[in-house]
Structures are given as structure tokens and as C-alpha cells.
């Protein structure tokens, strides 16, 4: 039998109380239960970054986060982002198919915050390394780096 547990969490500022299967990932919770399909499933194993959201302010792979383990969390997905980086991505053509884009955006917003919090020098090499958890098979990397540098 599936094990069900109640959880409550805030997503993009909106409060949700619901009962979930303990096996449900935060990603599937967002996509299948809350209708927030902006966060993408590219591998379901933390190997591509398409599912990246801001979990309690930090970028994290929603596919490996069990929803029950994040009872009480504050989640921001691409639908809840309102960041100049989004315009920069369009302007710089920092995507093609767009499937990795929500994860790239959440990851980049999280990375910018990390660089500030940890007092790290944000040059192109830093961005390239720290954004390497977000795979873009279309190969938009130079444009992604340019977009991030535009707003950094």
C-alpha cells in the first residue's frame, strides 16, 4: 500500500496543504499535483538540472527531494521568478528548445546569491563551473554565460 502523509508548503508565495504519497518527489508534486509544469523532468536522477528550483532560498534538484522531506519548505519555481535574468535569457538567446531553461534560471539565481553570500569572484570561469549542473543539449552555454554576466 502506498504510504500517505500530510504536508504543507509554500510555493511561489502560495500556501498548499495536501496529502502525498511518500514516494512523490518535490518535482512530481509541482508538476502533477500543483499544475506547475515549469520545472522540468530531464533525468529524474539529479544528473541534468532541469528540475532545479529554489528550495528555502537555495537551488536544489527537485527530482531528488522527496516532498515529505520538505514539509514546511518555501519553494520558488520558474513560474514564481521575477528576475531581470529572464529578459537577459531572451535577449541573449540563452536557450533553444527551452526545456532546460527553467532549471538554468533557478540555478543561476541561486548561484548569484551563493557568490554574494560566500564572497566569491563572479567571472566567466566561475559561472561556467557553477552552472555545470544544468545541462543544455542545444548548446546555448555561451549565451547563458553572457546573460548571467549581463545581470551579475
Amino acid at each position: 500500500m502506498a504510504e500517505l502523509q500530510p504536508i504543507a508548503l509554500t510555493v511561489n508565495g502560495e500556501h498548499h496543504s495536501l496529502v502525498v504519497d511518500t514516494r512523490t518527489s518535490l518535482l512530481d508534486l509541482l508538476r502533477e499535483h500543483l499544475g506547475l509544469t515549469g520545472s522540468k523532468k530531464g533525468c529524474d536522477h539529479g544528473q541534468c538540472g532541469a528540475c532545479t528550483v529554489l528550495l528555502d532560498g537555495r537551488r536544489a534538484n527537485a527530482c531528488l527531494a522527496l516532498a515529505v522531506a520538505h514539509d514546511g519548505a518555501d519553494v520558488v519555481t520558474v513560474e514564481g521568478l521575477d528576475h531581470p535574468l529572464q529578459d537577459a535569457f531572451v535577449e541573449r538567446d540563452a536557450f533553444q528548445c527551452g526545456y532546460c531553461t527553467p532549471g538554468q534560471l533557478c540555478s543561476a539565481v541561486g548561484m548569484l546569491d551563493e557568490a554574494e553570500r560566500w564572497d566569491e569572484r563572479l567571472d566567466a570561469d566561475y559561472v561556467r563551473d557553477r552552472m555545470s549542473g544544468n545541462i543544455c543539449r542545444c548548446g546555448a552555454y555561451p549565451n547563458i554565460v553572457a546573460a548571467i554576466e549581463d545581470v551579475a
Binding site: G46, G49, R59, A60, L64, A65, G110, G133, N134
Partner: peptide, 12 residues
């Protein structure tokens, strides 16, 4: 630590 995994995985 920084050579392992990715930024978002290291946060978890």
C-alpha cells in the same frame, strides 16, 4: 567538495 557533483546537488 567543489569538484564533486553540481552546485544544486551540493546544496542538498
Amino acid at each position: 567538495l567543489l569538484a564533486g557533483a553540481s552546485g544544486q546537488l551540493r546544496n542538498l
